[in-house]
Design a protein around this nucleic acid. Structure first.
Lengths: 192, 192
DNA sequence: CTGGTCATGTAACACGTTACATGATTGT
DNA sequence: ACAATCATGTAACGTGTTACATGACCAG
């Protein structure tokens, strides 16, 4: 049961799709060829996580539409709620976000707070590294070809990414906490 | 010649390291076990990209220190300068940044401008998707469990990430363009 | 005396990619 | 005619992970 197994389950938790459509959808996250999707779908059916229905079409080949089962939703929720380590692949994080609808308010807020902790720790480590670079390079560089420059801009990028992620987490939490109506006009995440 | 092949070359372009130290360094980007590094290092030596020197140590086991060759630098530069597609793995992007010291001012600015184009296009597509979500959901949601909410926050996250990346690219360009002294006090990327 | 760090390597297995294979329909 | 899209599947190959294997030194 690898990332793609949960990936297919995650996408199917949003809507029922054919193997072909599933491939198109999951490509928004990362590239997956159809050769990996069809065998895994068979396994998902085997495991009782999804059901398959043949849909006949006119002008197009028939297709098999897959729908998530209750058992599948339970597994997807387990995967969403399990603790993640720092080395988690980015794609997996995006996929988890795409599944937030499977969580209740308190579960979602808890996960977001957890994520804020992880990003804060990352920033702390990178800030230390930046200070170290500044010190060992004597606070100035002879040229941009100095490898301290590469390290410096790389660390600055990682810090800004984590800071942005924290800001986004807080925005999501604030939406969950504002009890009122859920209106797109009231919720807009200011980009920078 | 896969990502790790260039990854090892990229790290070695910054400094000579043993297989063990190389593993520790590359783990800053993504997890790589030593079982993958040692065979690849042998291949890099075979291909004439790096040279190997045995360094005896007291109190610690002897180690093999690997250094990049001129041929290795040429290949690393080729890899850096080759066009990248949108589906490029994130790790590879970070690795490329870590190697900027191999590029001259004009090459680096060209790459940054190119990246800005890619991120801009990404934002454009995601903005369209957000507008679509707003429309089909009727500009409001019944609950946070609605999968439009998941899609909405996911797209917002991707947009903010790309926007931050563009800001970072512009910051790097501005540093390359400011001819004066290279002082860490003069260059600070404001996080959000 | 147990577990952690430094240090290098191999082997079995799981996972992922590219290529092969088929076939109807629609647009250029 | 030719290429692209929709639609599903298998096979060979290459990549990556986990486990096996060894050994000195140091700290608790």
């Amino acid at each position: 049961m690898n990332t793609l197994y949960y990936g297919l389950l995650a996408v199917l938790s949003n809507q029922s799709l054919s193997g072909y459509d599933l491939m198109l959808r999951i490509n928004a996250f990362w590239h997956v060829p159809h050769s990996r999707i069809y065998p895994l779908l068979a396994k998902l059916v085997d495991d009782g996580m999804v059901t398959c229905t043949l849909v006949e079409q006119k002008g197009k080949p028939d297709k098999k539409v897959y729908s998530i089962t209750d058992k599948g939703v339970i597994l997807a929720r387990e995967w969403l709620l399990k603790d993640v380590d720092e080395t988690e692949k980015r794609e997996e994080l995006l996929l988890r976000i795409y599944c937030t609808h499977l969580l209740d308010k308190y579960e979602a807020i808890k996960i977001m707070n957890n994520r804020i902790q992880i990003y804060s720790e990352k920033i702390r480590k990178r800030e230390l590294r930046v200070e170290e670079i500044k010190k060992v390079s004597g606070f100035s560089l002879n040229s941009f070809n100095d490898h301290y420059f590469s390290s410096y801009i790389l660390n600055k990028k990682l810090i800004s990414e984590s800071a942005m992620a924290i800001k986004w987490c807080r925005w999501v939490i604030s939406m969950y906490e504002s009890e009122g109506s859920i209106n797109f006009l009231d919720m807009d995440f200011p980009v920078i």
